[in-house]
Design a protein around this nucleic acid. Structure first.
Lengths: 211, 211
DNA sequence: ATTTGTAGTGAACAAATGAGCACGTAATGA
DNA sequence: TCATTACGTGCTCATTTGTTCACTACAAAT
């Protein structure tokens, strides 16, 4: 676990990330200073020293713009130069706790930005069980989820049901709501009006890795 | 289409990409010169001017290390800072033409480097047909392929068969080689000793995107 | 025959840049 | 109370770095 940053240090670290993503190269001490109205390069330098000490970046001595950043752990990152988006993988999901709460995050997944038409708020979940194999979703796959509170008929969704999350096909017919597995071994689940049921989001992607 | 580079310019462009990925910041003129044994910074500068003119990078005047790179179109990129790998998506595959020939490339796919234990030589193919739906590989999915010339029993592979590429399960039993579809609608294909058959590689990943 | 583009040397220069010192303020916790 | 940490100024200095000039050389295209 990395050490806690002060507000000021956090601001500066974010600025450096942003600057590098925008320009392709890191800022100088004076460019940082200008942004934060720190007149002396020495003041900036000590912020960098602190950030380096706490493990967020490395500074190459005597090299101009010699800042190399350590990767973020939890944040969504969108890189327009290389066209990727980094989304969090949610480890355990529990009712009541916001799904993207930092404690839940189990890693990150980098995917192509061209997939992410749906802004940047997606997250990923690792699938347990085999109830969706006929939809090509296997145990261990990562499903990419676009958060939504409702769903349309036939959509593949992630639902919260009695403190558990499941992936199912959403069916609404004659005002009855059912969750359909895609595996003959399982039965549809009628959730019409059940309080312990809610829609978490819609499955927009599947990523599987073998071995 | 970007303009053609000379060998020298291409070498230098690749070095800058590599340097930036390794260090997090671009090289100086003298660092480039040292690598290529160009004694004068002016010699290096004119290479950068040429690369800028041809649209491969931008140079910020009077800014040290002020090189910002245009994204590659076709090459594999590995970024250690943000932990991603960019692999080419192969459009059409034809016998005789090297599979990663530039003409074949149809885009690129960014994926998480943690998936890429298999060095960096992978590429992706878009799946046509439904012969592997029981293996969770659907039409339109992208399969990530690790190039190999042989396969083990039971592996999901990409094979070249009579000028067509297909995804199948590889079976070798009693010295007979068959390609097994994962769909009841199709029959196994016996390819024992057939000349028009070759293994392209092993499927190591599947990426599906909905909508 | 001349232009254009590529590729390089060597030197000189100004600007950009990081390092360092002495000094000051404020908040926090032991 | 004292030590520590965070945060800042103003300044100097040495180094790094990009810019520019004059000159050479070769190949391809016009």
């Amino acid at each position: 676990m990395k050490k806690q940053l002060t507000d000021r240090q956090d601001d500066i670290l974010r600025f450096i990330h942003h600057f590098r993503n925008e320009n392709g190269y890191p800022p100088t001490l004076r460019e940082i200073g200008k942004k934060f109205e720190i007149a002396s390069t020495f003041g900036v330098k000590r912020h960098l020293d602190a950030l380096e000490k706490k493990g967020y970046l490395n500074v190459e001595s005597n090299a101009s713009r010699g800042i190399s950043l350590q990767p973020f752990e939890n944040d969504a990152i969108i890189d327009t130069t290389n066209n990727f988006t980094k989304i969090p993988i949610i480890g355990h999901v529990a009712a009541g706790i916001p799904i993207t709460a930092i404690e839940n995050i189990d890693g990150s997944l980098v995917i192509d930005s061209s997939f992410m038409k749906h802004s940047e708020s997606c997250f990923a979940l690792r699938v347990k069980g085999d109830s969706m194999i006929n939809a090509g979703i296997f145990e261990g796959d990562l499903v990419v989820v676009l958060p939504k509170k409702d769903a349309a008929n036939g959509e593949t969704i992630v639902a919260m049901l009695e403190d558990e999350v499941t992936v199912k096909t959403f069916e609404i017919k004659n005002k009855k709501v059912r969750l359909l597995p895609a595996n003959e071994k399982y039965q549809p689940i009628d959730v019409t009006g059940r309080k312990e049921f809610s829609v978490v989001g819609k499955v927009v992607g599947v990523v599987r890795w073998l071995n």
